[in-house]
């Protein structure tokens, strides 16, 4: 990865700056332990779009991994809801969730880990005549291959992601071209095109 040959003559002043910035820095001596501990912490649950069928997202089975504590919390909430006669709740597979009408941006709380709620955020993009659409953003490290969307009906592309509450910048990758969501606010980026901004919050409609 190192450059083999200087690609341009170096200015002594710039070289002086570079030499200073190459000095080593000291990190927290417990940094390695912190990283290894973080590997075991729960994070975003990987959900993948169902590529085998074109069923609406709400009709697809979802596999959701939750920690025992989160599962107990969900179970307790469910028992509580039943106890107060919340018979309107509809079961979806093994995990009880408050399902809402399919609309862009619907938020479904599914679990709570280390005090931070995780919600399923649905992204919907309308575009006919394209071959592929993917989601790129802060939630997937702008990885163009991590979050492909599924065309659930002609021109309607969807994907749902479990995310922690917060604000995320993202773009749609439409046949390789970056586009923003016209229904959401935008922010300028340092890299040319603006980003769409979505706020994910743990509210239930």
């Amino acid at each position: 990865m190192r450059c083999k040959v200087a690609e341009q003559l170096r200015d002594p002043f710039i070289e002086q700056i570079a030499a200073e910035l190459r000095r080593p820095v000291r990190l927290d001596p417990r940094f390695d332990d912190r990283v290894m501990a973080a590997l075991e912490a729960p994070d975003v649950i990987p959900l993948h779009p169902d590529r085998q069928t074109r069923r609406p997202w709400i009709a697809r089975p979802w596999t959701i991994r939750v920690s025992p504590i989160a599962a107990m919390a969900v179970a307790a909430a469910f028992v509580g809801a039943v106890a107060i006669g919340a018979w309107q709740l509809r079961p979806i597979d093994q995990v009880q969730m408050a399902s809402q009408p399919a609309e862009p941006g619907v938020l479904i709380p599914v679990a709570t880990t280390d005090g931070e709620p995780i919600v399923v955020q649905q992204f919907t993009f309308h575009r006919k005549g394209v071959k592929s659409i993917a989601l790129v953003g802060e939630f997937n490290d702008w990885d163009e291959t991590a979050t492909p969307m599924t065309e659930v009906s002609e021109g309607v592309w969807e994907v749902s992601l479990p995310l922690r509450a917060g604000t995320y910048e993202f773009q749609y990758l439409v046949d390789g071209r970056r586009e923003t969501d016209p229904t959401l606010p935008e922010r300028p980026s340092d890299f040319g095109s603006p980003n769409s901004v979505i706020t994910v919050s743990p509210r239930v409609r």
Binding site: V25, L27, D28, F31, R34, V35, A38, L39, D141
Partner: peptide
């Protein structure tokens, strides 16, 4: 890479957070 993160972000705390996040990812 910690050095790069510190230079890029200008503080050790921010750099460690980014570095840890990158290692986890």
């Amino acid at each position: 890479y910690g050095r790069y993160a510190v230079r890029m972000l200008g503080s050790r705390e921010d750099a460690e957070e980014a570095l840890q996040d990158a290692f986890v990812r």
